[in-house]
Amino acid sequence: MNRTEREAAVRRVLDQTPPQVPPELHAAAVRRGDRVLRRRRLARRVLWLLVCAAAVAFTVWALTARPWAAPPPATPPVGDW
């Protein structure tokens, strides 16, 4: 099929009247869309909650462990013998 035949086939398809859509399809699509939006909103809230919990946990760990402080010496200093 060359280009002109493809264009003619596309024009024939586009010139036809579109098929009738069942009336209950709109209501079903709206219900499904609402459900998808609710799930996305819930997932977004759960992820924000996890991020906030991780930030709090990191802050508590950093305040208790003090990773920026110098570590204690591994051995006691050697005295005069």
Rank of each mutant, 00 (worst) to 15 (best):
D34M: 09
W61F: 09
A28Y: 10
P67E: 00
P18F: 03
R35V: 06
W48F: 09
L25N: 04
P72A: 04
R3H: 06
A9N: 05
R66Y: 00
A29M: 13
A29E: 13
R6L: 10
A54H: 05
W81I: 14
R12T: 00
G79V: 15
R45C: 05
R3W: 15
W61P: 01
T75I: 12
A43M: 11
Q16I: 02
P76I: 10
R6W: 06
P73E: 00
V51M: 07
A28V: 08
L63Y: 02
P73W: 00
A27Y: 09
V30R: 05
L49F: 03
L42R: 12
P77K: 01
P67A: 00
A43G: 11
R39W: 06
W68S: 03
R45H: 13
A8S: 01
P77E: 00
N2S: 05
V13D: 11
W81R: 13
A29R: 14
R45K: 11
V21E: 01
C52K: 10
V13H: 15
M1K: 07
L47D: 05
E7I: 09
D15F: 05
L63D: 00
A57N: 04
V21Q: 03
A27G: 14
A65K: 12
P71F: 03
L25W: 12
L25S: 08
R41P: 02
E5F: 01
D34I: 13
V60L: 11
A74G: 13
R45A: 07
G33H: 04
R44E: 15
T17H: 15
G79L: 10
A65S: 15
V10G: 10
P76H: 14
P23E: 02
V46Y: 03
L25Y: 10
E24A: 08
E24D: 10
P76T: 09
A27N: 14
D80L: 15
P76D: 14
V46K: 03
V78F: 13
R11V: 06
D34C: 12
A65C: 15
P23M: 03
R39C: 06
V36A: 05
V21D: 01
H26W: 14
L14R: 05
R41S: 14
W81Q: 10
R44I: 09
V46D: 02
M1T: 03
T75R: 15
E7G: 00
V78N: 05
A53Y: 02
L42S: 10
V56A: 07
R35I: 06
V13I: 15
A9L: 07
R44N: 12
A74L: 15
R44V: 07
E7Q: 08
A62D: 08
